[in-house]
Design a protein around this nucleic acid. Sequence first.
DNA 1: TTCTTAAAAGAGAATAATTCTCATTTAAGA
DNA 2: TCTTAAATGAGAATTATTCTCTTTTAAGAA
Lengths: 135, 135
Amino acid sequence: MINLKNTLFEKKLKVTPQRLKVLEAVYNISHPTAEDVIKYIRKRYFDIATGTVYKILETFVEKGLIKKITTDKDIIRYDGILKPHHHLYSLEGNLIKDYIDEELDKILQEYFKHKKISDFEITEISLQIKGKFNK
Amino acid sequence: MINLKNTLFEKKLKVTPQRLKVLEAVYNISHPTAEDVIKYIRKRYFDIATGTVYKILETFVEKGLIKKITTDKDIIRYDGILKPHHHLYSLEGNLIKDYIDEELDKILQEYFKHKKISDFEITEISLQIKGKFNK
DNA sequence: TTCTTAAAAGAGAATAATTCTCATTTAAGA
DNA sequence: TCTTAAATGAGAATTATTCTCTTTTAAGAA
């Protein structure tokens, strides 16, 4: 169980009720949009301005507390998992799942140790795996 | 040199001047946004309604003529290259480059032939490689 | 505990990308 | 050439996101 207050404190961010709840939301919802976060907080805790949530999410991304994830929809989603991982995308719906595979990471790391891409320095590699979820 | 008229015809799409130019634009601009396509056409050929361009791009994606590509910005980009490939993303600016690497594709294919992801059928794998371009 | 102040939050207007509606035009086959 | 379903255009509507400016508050100092 993560101590939310401490997480903010370590990043030198003022601990506010709004920030605590946004962080909680991103940790508890899978790949939420800003709108998802707003609903989560309004339903359970208190009213919050949309601009505030957008601002807080942006701040968290800058501080490296959460990550933006890429989708080909026009809505930005966020991810509370920081350790490098990949994503499974449903070709049918909006479902996105995390995919963690350290063996694969090792293979990729090994591969790019030898194969250099000219004029490009790799910081991070993530796979988008598209397909179909079977129920 | 691709025959644009024929490309549309094969997909059973009415051949219109607007569609021809949108297709030309996506082939000639690297990872354009809808706005990029509109500017391209207006500058060189004729005025075109924004809604028309959005509609045409959507139609092309549905017919598999082009692909949407994912970015963590809030703008959708398109890609005229259909053969499976990966993308290099600049962490600094908006630069996106195609990255084609058949050796890597083979390794991934081999890897996932053995390693199955439970309840998921892979259709397509693409890498997002983030990092820094060196001039 | 109270005071101070920079930072954060709130309200709502502004912006920008995208979608929608409906009237008009046009490609393509009869 | 005629017919018609499909495509385009114009602009309004929608929606996600950002911005502005005022008010509130967290946190450290006194």
